[in-house]
Simulated assay, not measured.
Amino acid sequence: MAINKAWTAASFGLDTMIWNQVVAQPATAPLANHPRVMPVGGGVPIVVGGRVVGGIGISGGAAQQDHDMAVAALEAAGLEVSK
């Protein structure tokens, strides 16, 4: 799950917490059927100089806990985090 959270965040440049809201909309709900899209909190894009260069995925807790840990890891590494 963590790998797919990181893939989702990196591929679309959006936190997976936001993806959860995206796939809740009827017009975009089919996107949740993509085999790698993981619309569960814990995936955060890695941004350097305003560009998405990767993603981090955390799994094992509740969605909000995973998200908070991913943000904390990026902040500890001195990387940009969109809020």
Rank of each mutant, 00 (worst) to 15 (best):
A76D: 12
I46L: 14
V37P: 01
M1D: 14
K83I: 00
A73Y: 03
A76L: 11
Q65S: 13
G78N: 05
L74I: 11
V71Y: 05
N20P: 00
Q25N: 14
S59R: 02
V40I: 15
D66Q: 10
V52H: 05
R51F: 04
P35K: 09
D68P: 03
S82G: 09
P26I: 08
A9S: 12
V81Q: 10
G43K: 07
A2V: 08
P45N: 11
A2N: 13
P35N: 09
P35C: 01
Q21L: 12
L74C: 06
D68A: 15
A6C: 10
L14W: 09
V48H: 09
A29K: 15
P45I: 11
F12M: 13
G57D: 11
V71H: 02
H34R: 12
G57S: 07
V23K: 03
A29R: 15
G42C: 08
M38K: 13
T28C: 01
A6N: 04
D66K: 06
Q25L: 15
M17C: 04
G54L: 07
I46V: 15
A76M: 09
A73D: 04
G55A: 11
S11D: 08
V53D: 05
P45A: 10
N20K: 15
A32L: 01
H67G: 10
G60N: 07
A63G: 02
V37Q: 01
N33W: 00
W7I: 10
E75R: 15
Q25Y: 03
G78A: 07
V52P: 02
Q65G: 08
G61A: 13
G49L: 12
A10I: 01
G78W: 07
A27E: 15
G55K: 08
G78L: 06
V47N: 07
R51Y: 04
G49K: 11
G57R: 10
A9K: 06
A62T: 14
G60F: 03
I18G: 00
Q65P: 00
R36W: 13
T8R: 05
D68E: 14
G42P: 02
V71S: 07
I18W: 09
G50E: 08
V52A: 07
G57W: 07
N20S: 14
N33S: 15
A10F: 04
G43L: 06
A73M: 13
V81Y: 08
E75C: 02
L79Y: 14
G55W: 04
N4K: 14
S82P: 05
V52C: 12
V48G: 01
A9V: 08
V40E: 02
W19C: 06
